[in-house]
């Protein structure tokens, strides 16, 4: 408590109240766009200075270029949306040569989302992408519900999740966070398994598998049939899972799922997350991340809290 106070008075800048340190990551604030909802930053870079973000989680990168699923790829649902993009991305080489160097103009740590079909792909992508100067951490995507093989199969079996984490840890030059899927019976088991495999942190949650049917035809709206549910609708599920997982692991959690306004950030921190990612809300309001960052200090004042980290895990203290 006093430690934080002294940091903020030393810096003299209010913003130090928001600074958070996590493995590999010196975050100016705990707010970052979630993977897949921010591309590789270029589009949002036209709208505001990306250096104000805590970090950026870039779109999943696979070894080879991927074109993703047929369309329609998205469907709106009650207070949410389904997506089945299918990990469309320019591939490891494209990301290394074009996307990451472009992001170097900003003073912001990049968290590279790594996806694959088999262990060897993950390992190869992780090994190379972790050498990029601005990639400060990896986010292992073992939870994408929208690709036929790989992805989520690693995320639903504790042993496979453990082994993949260990294999990637061995080659990565930077700390490894593992992104968990909510589509499991007991997410705590997976969390413990990746921690045992050497994960430096956990990011959660990825999307919940769902479907929407067309009223007239009765057919699925999304071409992939199923999609991943995100947005405000999933927030209670995400909060509950962060609340549970944060009590069974020692490693930090970056929480996400439905964060759309500043109050949601407070909830995720209270549930046990150390930082928070914003996904779908970027589509609703492209300036949502800067808006939340700007609003945080006054919410801390309202709550009578000096430094944002004091909120982490408040829900457990009862």
């Amino acid at each position: 408590m006093f430690g934080w106070t002294s940091i903020s008075s030393r810096g003299g800048v209010d913003m130090n109240r928001l600074a958070v340190e996590l493995p590999g990551l010196q975050l100016k604030n705990p707010i970052m766009p979630a993977s897949g909802c921010f591309g590789f930053g270029k589009e949002y870079g036209n709208l505001y200075d990306l250096s104000m973000l805590g970090a950026i989680m870039i779109k999943a990168t696979t070894l080879d270029k991927r074109f993703g699923n047929p369309t329609p790829r998205v469907a709106e649902t009650a207070s949410g949306m389904l997506n089945a993009i299918g990990l469309q991305n320019p591939g490891l080489q494209g990301v290394m040569e074009n996307e990451l160097p472009w992001l170097e103009q900003y003073d912001v740590p990049i968290i590279a989302n790594v996806a694959g079909t088999e262990t060897a792909d993950y390992v190869e992508v992780a090994k190379t992408i972790s050498t990029a100067p601005n990639v400060k951490a990896l986010e292992l995507n073992i939870s994408c519900p929208n690709v036929k093989c790989g992805g989520i199969t690693f995320g639903t079996d504790p042993q496979q999740a453990h082994d993949l984490t260990a294999a990637v840890k061995e080659v990565s030059e930077v700390p490894v966070y593992v992104k968990l899927s909510p589509n499991v019976t007991d997410i705590k088991e997976i969390a413990k398994a990746v921690e045992a495999g050497g994960a430096d942190g956990i990011t959660m949650i990825n999307t919940l598998v769902g479907m929407r049917l067309d009223q007239k035809t009765g057919r699925p709206v999304i071409a992939n049939i199923t999609g991943g549910l995100s947005g405000p609708a999933v927030k209670p599920v995400a909060i509950k899972m962060v609340y549970e997982v944060s009590q069974v692991v020692q490693i930090p959690i970056i929480g996400m799922g439905g964060v759309s306004e500043t109050a949601d950030v407070i909830d995720f921190l209270s549930a046990g997350a150390s930082a928070v990612a914003v996904g779908t809300a970027n589509f609703v309001d492209p300036f949502i991340c800067p808006k939340i960052i700007e609003e945080l200090p006054s919410i801390l004042d309202e709550l009578g809290v000096e430094h944002i980290s004091e909120l982490v895990g408040r829900s457990h203290r009862l």
Partner: peptide
């Protein structure tokens, strides 16, 4: 989704 080229 986004309308600006970020979400594919």
């Amino acid at each position: 989704g986004c309308g600006i080229g970020a979400c594919f």
